[in-house]
Every structure is written in structure tokens, then in C-alpha cells.
């Protein structure tokens, strides 16, 4: 038997406004307040049912915090709250020109790694960062105007750019370690 049904709003859980822009201080504050209230350590002497409930609550709070803190996670959650499935990527949701940029960025990353070229990595990082900001702006606008299909397309761009940024950071770290 499934116990959950409609999607639970993490914004509501943490008492935050349901917006793409995050009030980071309010998030941290709500997180600490709820953790202090529900953490299983506060129920160390209680019965198992109470402890199990505390564990489920805290898990939920942790998940909410992690999801909202991350811009891409937050964007996905905003889509999910509007009835879209952010985990499902349809073919038509990828713009052909974006696919081409993806390929060329990846090639640049590989070339920079092969040549141990730190400067090239930093340049790539800046451009990807720029692209992320652009995608984020259009995502926010499309979400506000309720153009959900468009917002979802931008969301998948964000996902890709985010992953690429992480790979660039890892490549930089690897260069510094040598």
C-alpha cells in the first residue's frame, strides 16, 4: 500500500515562498529549526513508534533541504508541483542547437583535460556558467508565465549544464592534485 499521494510541497514544509529564487537564509533557518525539533536524538528515550516517526520526519526535512538548496533540484521540484515529471526527458524537449553546443563543450573539455590546460578549463567554465544563467533566467520567466513545456525544456538544459560544471570542477581538481 502506498502511503503518499499528491506531491508534498517542500516549500510549504519549510515555510518558504514557492519561487525559483531562494531566500537562502530563510532556508537555513527553517532547516535548523525543524531538525532541532524532529531529529531522532530528541527522542532517544521514546518508544519505537515515536522514534520511527521522528526518523521519517527528519528524512523528509533533509530531502527537502537538499532539494531546494540546489537550483536544479529546486527547478525540478517546481515542475513536479505543477504536475510535470522532471525525471522524464522526451526527445522533442531537446533543441537541436543545444544538442550541438553540448557536443562541442564536451569536446573542449576532453581536449583541455588531455592537454592539462588549466586556462582552457577556466574559460570553458566561465562560458558554461554564463549559459547556465541564461537558461535559469528563461526558466524563471517561462514558469512565471505558466509556459510549462518551455520551462521544462530549459530545466533539462540546466540539468545538463550543471553536470558539465561538475565535470569541469573535477577536471580542475585533478589537475591541481598532480
Amino acid at each position: 500500500m502506498s502511503t503518499e499521494s499528491t506531491i508534498l510541497s517542500y516549500f510549504a514544509l519549510l515555510g518558504l515562498d514557492e519561487l525559483p529564487t531562494l531566500d537562502r537564509a530563510a532556508l537555513e533557518d527553517a532547516y535548523r529549526r525543524l531538525q532541532s525539533r524532529w531529529h531522532p536524538d530528541q527522542f532517544a528515550g521514546a518508544d519505537e513508534v515515536t522514534r520511527a516517526r521522528a526518523m521519517r520526519q527528519t528524512s523528509l526535512i533533509n530531502d527537502a533541504y537538499t532539494t531546494l538548496r540546489d537550483p536544479v533540484g529546486r527547478a525540478g521540484h517546481l515542475l513536479a508541483l505543477r504536475g510535470l515529471d522532471p525525471t522524464r526527458l522526451e526527445q522533442h524537449e531537446l533543441a537541436p542547437d543545444f544538442l550541438l553546443s553540448q557536443i562541442s563543450w564536451r569536446e573542449e573539455l576532453e581536449a583541455a583535460c588531455a592537454a592539462s590546460d588549466e586556462a582552457a578549463l577556466l574559460r570553458l567554465d566561465e562560458r558554461v556558467e554564463q549559459a547556465f544563467h541564461e537558461a535559469w533566467r528563461s526558466f524563471s520567466t517561462l514558469l512565471r508565465t505558466a509556459e510549462l513545456a518551455g520551462a521544462k525544456r530549459e530545466f533539462h538544459k540546466l540539468q545538463f549544464l550543471n553536470k558539465l560544471q561538475r565535470e569541469i570542477a573535477e577536471a580542475e581538481a585533478a589537475l591541481l592534485d598532480d
Binding site: M1, S2, S5, T6, I7, G73, H77, D85, T87, Q159
Partner: peptide, 25 residues
């Protein structure tokens, strides 16, 4: 039976954003 109806009604599971996080982390 109740559980099945809830599923059939197309109700999505809570926390649908979560597999997304797996991609992002």
C-alpha cells in the same frame, strides 16, 4: 482496493523530484 484506486487515479507519488537529485549530486 483503496490503494489501487489511488494509484489508478493517476496520483503521483510524493517527492517526485527525488530521482532528479540523483542526477544532480
Amino acid at each position: 482496493d483503496f490503494a489501487a484506486r489511488r494509484m489508478d487515479a493517476g496520483i503521483r507519488q510524493a517527492l517526485a523530484g527525488r530521482s532528479l537529485n540523483d542526477i544532480d549530486q
